[in-house]
């Protein structure tokens, strides 16, 4: 079915400018196109898939189209990464590139959104792929079950409009920041430890390495404090807001500064970076 005919079909099933999910599925079945292509055709025809109805007023149909056409890298699919995947898929980002070499382990269950007892031992990127397929089948996942490094980073993240940091190592974060600088892709950094977290954006041409001090162990105080359930959810949500702004060219990015969160004293400090 050519795109014009598909658009006509979708218009015929729209309620106002909202396209119900059932019509999106039927459009895919009739046209032989994937759900992602049907979503693209709908958005191009000015129709909003009804699942995004509550994005309205915050995001326009044009914004939603821009998100659909975006490719976002998520490096690390654990504590931060699970929430990054969930929120970006629900938001309507079209393509998620997931990078993580690990499988779920029992000590992940206290906080990692995608971990469940039934999925212990399963690869995090595969569980994330399944979750996206369940939550938003119109989103496309590219899963890389490997550890990001200076050597493979440019290959894994090529073509991304933005990258979100869900890593658990300061050393690898330095490599990720360098890869993003090399690619000229904005990086939304997040890191956590216990009650504490930090968020910052590295725009092309900038460098957030001062936040990533090189130490012998390459780890922070999370080795002593661990990470509770709520800290990754808070920090990842702030990261997703920054990713959305970068993709849409809206608002004021958390660039040239770092937001430091103390959830115990409930104080947020904004510090200049540089």
């Amino acid at each position: 079915m050519p795109e014009a005919a598909l658009a006509d079909f979708l218009r015929s099933r729209a309620e106002g400018d909202l396209l119900p999910w059932a019509a999106q599925v039927e459009g895919a079945a009739r046209s032989g196109a994937g759900l992602a292509e049907v979503e693209l055709a709908a958005l191009r025809a000015g129709l909003l898939p009804a699942r995004y109805r509550r994005n309205r007023s915050t995001l326009t149909v044009e914004d939603q189209l821009r998100l659909h056409l975006s490719r976002v890298g998520i490096v690390g699919c654990g504590g931060l990464g699970g929430y990054l995947v969930e929120e970006l898929a629900r938001l309507g980002v079209g393509t998620l590139v997931l990078v993580d070499p690990d499988v779920f382990e029992e000590h992940n269950l206290n906080r990692q959104l995608l971990s469940t007892p039934a999925r212990l031992g399963a690869a995090k990127v595969e569980v994330a792929r399944d979750r996206v397929a369940e939550v938003n089948p119109a989103a496309t996942v590219v899963a890389h079950r490997e550890a990001l490094s200076a050597a493979n980073g440019a290959r894994l993240l090529a073509g991304c409009s933005a990258v979100a940091d869900g890593l658990d190592s300061v050393r690898v974060r330095r490599e990720l920041a360098a890869v993003c600088r090399g690619l000229g892709v904005p990086l939304v950094h997040g890191a956590i430890a216990g009650w504490y977290g930090q968020v910052a954006v590295q725009l092309p041409g900038a460098d957030l390495s001062p936040l990533l001090r090189e130490t012998p162990g390459g780890k922070g105080i999370e080795t002593a404090l661990g990470n509770p359930a709520f800290t990754p959810a808070v920090v990842a949500s702030l990261q997703v807001a920054e990713v959305a702004k970068l993709l849409l060219g809206r608002g004021k990015a958390l660039a040239g500064r770092v937001l430091h969160l103390d959830l115990l004293e409930m104080r947020f400090e904004e510090l200049p970076l540089g």
Binding site: D168, V170, A193, Y196, Q198, T215, G220, H260
Partner: peptide, 10 residues
């Protein structure tokens, strides 16, 4: 002078 601990978890 302001000193913050290194945060590296995810």
């Amino acid at each position: 002078v302001a000193i913050f601990p290194l945060l590296g978890g995810g």
